[in-house]
């Protein structure tokens, strides 16, 4: 049974790339294209990990994390933030909202994403 990962991301090419890479690694990927959809889907599919973008339409990544914090089931799901930015204030805020890791897109590549995913899932 492949492990389910939820990707919350609005950038189409990033979705394609991550989906391809993660599927190749043997994960089952579900995609939400905005924060609101992300919250709905995580309740439905109960993923082992969430890859979360920050700047998105409807709810942004921080707002999604805030909502998750209010839900005792959702707050258990580990989150890796995948963002274009990486300011210390943002990192601090994400950490306080329960994010396990943070990836700046320009500084990492898909291979490194897999490494971080595996680390979080404990493989």
């Amino acid at each position: 049974m492949p492990k389910k990962i939820l990707l919350v991301e609005d950038e189409e090419i990033m979705i394609d790339l991550l989906q391809k890479k993660l599927t190749q690694e043997g994960y089952e990927i579900s995609v939400a294209r905005n924060g609101e959809q992300g919250l709905t889907m995580m309740r439905e599919i109960n993923p082992v990990l969430i890859l979360l973008d920050i700047i998105m339409p409807k709810l942004n990544g921080f707002e999604v994390m805030e909502e998750m914090q209010k839900d005792k089931e959702l707050k258990k799901i580990p989150i890796i933030v995948v963002s274009n930015s990486g300011q210390p204030v943002e990192l601090d805020r994400a950490q306080k909202l329960g994010a396990k890791d943070w990836l700046i897109k320009t500084e990492f590549d898909p291979q490194e994403v897999i490494k971080k995913v595996k680390k979080q899932i404990g493989e």
Partner: peptide
């Protein structure tokens, strides 16, 4: 600069996946 980062990341990741043989 922020706006440029998104397409630059997409290009980076795509090229990296080509190089890694993922595609």
């Amino acid at each position: 600069a922020h706006q440029l980062r998104t397409p630059l990341s997409a290009i980076k990741w795509t090229l990296k996946m080509f190089l890694d043989g993922d595609l």
